[in-house]
């Protein structure tokens, strides 16, 4: 094989790697007690893309997001993360795939009685099985320092020893983001990450969150009912209605006004 051909193949591989679909969802279905919430959902998200998911309240955004990680078991369809089939994976395989995917939900879901530092360290449970991570006092110093660095990224380096339930809503959500960064994921899924915050704190946290995710080159899927956030922070918008993806469009050039029609 000549050097030139090898170079070309290398180039193609790199090109493919960039364009690789990190998440593929095909014909996903989910009903709750006979009521079809997800009828037939299909979409792809490529590496390093930021995609927003919009839809009315109760349209099934949270259900879809939880199904993607099999936190809710889908009734049918196919799920692929990084080319690996999630539906066929056993418990171990499932954990392995999940460890590469960060999850930030509307509620921060920190453990209230533990310190902020312990909560951030728990992000490392994705790749470290050691019981030393359960409590910050026993954690290896490398990881403690890394956790402090993640707290620094979200501007909470002075809050490490604070109890997690002694924080404001915005601070809690930033700790949840630090926990997700601690995990060093390749992909982050966020379910209305700032919906529980007031508009100003919501804008700030969203700005911080997306800039960190972009800087770390993490692929992002987030749901939002804030159309401005969807347009500003994502490359592509998915609109969920009647259990199907009815909109799949680049976000540039969209205006909140035209998208609002989607809710009618």
């Amino acid at each position: 094989m000549s050097a030139k051909v090898a170079l070309k193949q290398n180039h193609i591989q790199q090109h493919l790697a960039v364009k690789r679909a990190d998440l593929k969802v095909c014909n996903l279905k989910k009903s709750f007690s006979g009521k079809e919430i997800l009828r037939d959902v299909s979409f792809k998200i490529c590496s390093e893309e930021a995609v927003s998911l919009i839809g009315a309240n109760g349209s099934g955004k949270s259900t879809l997001i939880r199904c993607c990680l099999r936190l809710i078991e889908p009734d049918g369809g196919r799920l692929e993360f990084f080319g690996q089939d999630l539906m066929l994976a056993n418990q171990r395989g499932l954990r392995k795939i999940r460890s590469k995917v960060g999850f930030v939900s509307q509620k921060h879901n920190l453990v209230p009685r533990l310190s902020v530092l312990s909560n951030v360290l728990h992000g490392a449970l994705a790749y470290q099985r050691s019981p030393r991570l359960w409590f910050q006092g026993f954690a290896p110093s490398v990881l403690r320092e890394k956790a402090m660095h993640c707290l620094e990224l979200v501007g909470l380096q002075d809050f490490g020893s604070r109890r997690a339930d002694h924080l404001s809503g915005g601070q809690s959500q930033r700790v949840a983001i630090a926990r997700a960064l601690m995990q060093q994921p390749e992909f982050i899924i966020a379910d209305e990450p700032v919906a529980s915050l007031d508009p100003q704190a919501g804008d700030e946290v969203m700005e911080l969150f997306v800039s960190l995710v972009r800087k770390e080159k993490i692929t992002l899927l987030f749901s939002s009912h804030n159309l401005d956030h969807a347009i500003k922070y994502s490359d592509r918008i998915l609109g969920l209605r009647n259990g199907e993806i009815e909109i799949d469009t680049a976000s540039s050039g969209q205006s909140a006004f035209t998208l609002r029609g989607f809710y009618e």
Binding site: L69, L71, L94, R95, K96, I97, R98, S99, K100, V101, G102, F103, S105, N109, L110, H122, G123, L125, A126, A176, R179, A180, Q183, P185
Partner: peptide, 8 residues
Amino acid sequence: EALKAIGA
């Protein structure tokens, strides 16, 4: 759920 989601 938050910990399960990351494969703990």
